[in-house]
Design a protein around this nucleic acid. Structure first.
Lengths: 219, 219
DNA sequence: TTTTTAAAGTTGACCCCGTCAACATTGTGT
DNA sequence: ACACAATGTTGACGGGGTCAACTTTAAAAA
């Protein structure tokens, strides 16, 4: 192990990110502070500024991390070539929601309002674009095999994103009254909600089915 | 007119809300502070606390206001009985997005992360439920006339909400890369984006059509 | 009308925060 | 061995949230 009490911490940057995540999941995002971070790590209050220009930069780094994780998840679904493209697309969506549920802290920072629009790091912007592209890729694959309509793939991807984001918000925080939103879903899903054992796959399939097959009544 | 320099302001509560909105649209949500509000209005720094228990309560009041406005908009669409239910439902969605675009400040507070989940006023929760119910109502009306599938209306409403929320986020802040998201939309929409004259109706119809008619290729 | 009470406003104080400036320590490359 | 850059440290400034205690005033009770 490295010497504990050396003047230099050794890997403060990584430690800062990790500790920030800890604090957020323990006490909420609003409790994260540059000073507090330094204090908790056992370093001076302004030490964090040697690694992040400002608080926003720190949050950007977390969001970036999240997008990288998300990209990995989506990519994994996309690379299951044994599945047909439509299944891959579906699994991409499911993977997305699962990621959100499994990493609510990251997710909230990635898509919340904490990071001001004009303070987004270029790294973050790139990471976000990369994850979106993974979804786009899945859509295009379906279109190449004529499995879904040849509408512009960007729009489809965005529509899908809206759907998954909506589900994710629902599951993560109860912004939309979750009681209402789930009322009437297949009975098998109901108890899971209370018990916290939500079957993301079922929910996603249930909802994406509406999108895929359309909402219009069969005349 | 009321005496200007009386000890009591007269209608500080209303003034606080209005001023908060001003500050937000001028300098952003993060610049709103209890102290600053008092200062700007010309009252002491803690005066706002006589009207709002804490900052969260103030934001809740703004969000509540927003939901009330939104409810009014949706209700208006719902009450155009000269339209058929499907048109009403569509107009409800359009109204929603238009509301978001016209009231980005309110919208961001209504659906952002600023208000901690556990600090939501019961008034806010009620107001949010009321606005959601308006959407639900439009869905049910369609189902009664068998215009859309008899799937559980809560889920449909939520799916629609996801869609409209996705569009709104897209239009309000560029969280999703708006460049990508609109790329390839009908040419007539493209220039409007740059020029800031977005045709919400067109965008909504274009996207909701995907939902209504389904994404599956016609085999 | 006088008195009491409660609502609305005020100042003071405490502690936390973000961030800049100036200074200290240490690992590294020449 | 030495100079430099990276990393950490303390001090200081200006805000902010919020509680407590006190004041003014409008409204209700007597």
């Amino acid at each position: 192990m490295a010497t504990k009490k050396s003047y230099h911490h050794g890997d403060l940057r990584k430690k800062l990110l990790a500790t920030a995540l800890e604090i957020i999941s323990e006490h909420g995002l609003e409790k994260v502070s540059m000073r507090g971070l330094g204090h908790r790590i056992g370093v001076s209050r302004t030490a964090p500024y040697r690694h992040f220009a400002d608080k926003s930069a720190l949050l950007c780094a977390i969001a970036e991390q999240g997008h990288q994780k998300l990209t990995a998840v989506l990519k994994k679904a996309n690379q299951q070539l044994s599945d047909d493209p439509l299944t891959r697309l579906t699994n991409t969506g499911i993977g997305y929601v699962e990621f959100a549920v499994a990493n609510p802290v990251h997710y909230r920072i990635m898509f919340g309002n904490e990071i001001l629009e004009n303070k987004r790091t270029s790294e973050l912007v790139n990471a976000a674009e990369t994850s979106f592209n993974e979804l786009l890729y899945a859509v295009k694959a379906c279109q190449e095999e004529k499995l879904i309509k040849p509408i512009n793939p960007y729009i489809i991807a965005n529509t899908l994103w809206s759907l998954t984001h909506g589900i994710s918000m629902l599951l993560i925080d109860g912004q939309i009254q979750s009681a209402n939103a789930f009322r009437g879903m297949p009975a098998m899903l109901q108890p899971g909600i209370e018990a916290g054992k939500i079957d993301v796959r079922k929910i996603f399939e249930y909802k994406s089915d509406i999108l895929f097959t359309g909402l219009m009544a069969d005349s």
